[in-house]
Design a protein around this nucleic acid. Structure first.
Lengths: 225, 225
DNA sequence: CCAAAAGTGTTTATAATACACCCATGC
DNA sequence: GCATGGGTGTATTATAAACACTTTTGG
């Protein structure tokens, strides 16, 4: 067909919210090239595998959790001729949103994996800084006009937890009272459960699940004000 | 590195607005596979070429016009193992917005190229129906919250022309008077020129160029109402 | 009872719609 | 003049931000 063949990989920008900041899952590379450097988790696509399946497999490997209910989408492809010293490698970046969860202590192929603040990762292997930047930008954009913030929460969550996601993602405190009304009055965003959370300091909060809606009209954040 | 190598192609969803509907540029295939079928224009990525360069080259080939001022962005990658009967081919879909322009009468590699209504293209080669659908969906979404509608217009255009883009893209008539104020009062959307268009039936309209702004806050279209 | 967080009601500012109206041209 | 589309002003309506207030828990 042609002499110019590519190896094809998938790399994952796996984001979560810890404390008040976006964090990304990075692995320490154990083999050349870029041995010892931090990198996005990823790997080559298998002979009969589709891209989303390869990404799903990597996500399960790295987080130790099934993809059940996690959000995973394709981000963009990167194929700069010089991006990999081994030769011509195209990588398809993917973006995943997961709740804060304990990581498996690496019986994976990677030497170590851990959460790092997405805003301050230092130097990464290959062009992974660029892929990460694109992933963070896309994540922020999608939070504005979709209901995906709930993908960062566990299966059942409070309105305050959800608000923390938005506040972490774009660093602005939000009015808890107006936020409450906004999300509870958006049809299909939240499905109330009968249960409440106990043990907190104030009045117990009601627990919700993700609703069927995916798009927000109007968006969550407005212009500059 | 690995035995599972891919051929890598780029395919283009080139959109324009003709009359009152979105149209897409399609080519009639002159060689197998899918000989005689309609397909998106595209081709293989060259050995030292980056993806955007390959897409830019194809866009210039098909439209006969330099990419000056045209909008071109990566859409998504497609690599289903069965998508090409010749073997493992990954294609990186791209999305282009161009003004209505005369097509070169094919001294290109394709047998013929022409505009087709994007909503009614019939069967396409490979998985190009899917790629087209993704492109149209992305185009509609981006028109809502960016200034890209102006990319469908010639270098100088009237507010009514711009309104026609929006009306064609989502099939809703818009109030000319409120539309006028909305776009002219959005900073950086339109740059007025001294010139006006003559020969129309009513009062001559002022001509504008694209401004530096790219994002719209708030978006152009609101929810269902 | 007090502190703290959840959740509701109400006022106020802001922005979007609807539409009356004037402007500048061709015929 | 009059039809036609370009462009502006303004009243009405919807929405979001600000914040006082009530609810329900733990200590």
């Amino acid at each position: 067909m042609r002499g110019n063949l590519f190896a094809v990989a998938v790399d994952l920008v796996i984001l979560t919210v810890r404390g008040a900041a976006l964090h990304v899952l990075l692995v320490r590379r154990g083999v050349p090239p870029f041995e010892g450097a931090l990198a996005l988790p990823g790997g080559f696509v298998l002979p009969r595998e589709d891209l989303i399946d390869a990404a799903t497999r990597e996500l399960a490997t790295e987080t130790g959790v099934a993809v059940e209910g996690h959000h995973l989408e394709q981000l963009a492809s990167y194929a700069d001729p010089g991006r990999d010293p081994r030769g011509r490698v195209l990588t398809v970046g993917h973006l995943a949103f997961v709740p804060e969860l304990p990581l498996p202590t690496a019986d994976t192929d990677a030497a170590a994996n851990a959460w790092y603040p997405a805003a301050d990762v230092g130097e990464l292997a290959f062009d992974h800084e660029r892929i990460l930047a694109d992933g963070v930008e896309r994540a922020r954009a999608k939070l504005e006009y979709t209901t995906l913030a709930a993908s960062f929460c566990p299966p059942e969550f409070t309105v305050a937890q959800l608000r923390g996601i938005y506040e972490a993602a774009w660093g602005t405190p939000l009015d808890p009272r107006n936020f409450q009304r906004k999300v509870t009055s958006t049809p299909g965003f939240l499905v109330p459960t009968a249960r409440t959370v106990s043990g907190g300091r104030g009045r117990p909060a009601q627990l919700f699940r993700r609703g069927p809606a995916t798009m927000l009209h109007p968006p969550m954040l407005r212009g500059d004000p």
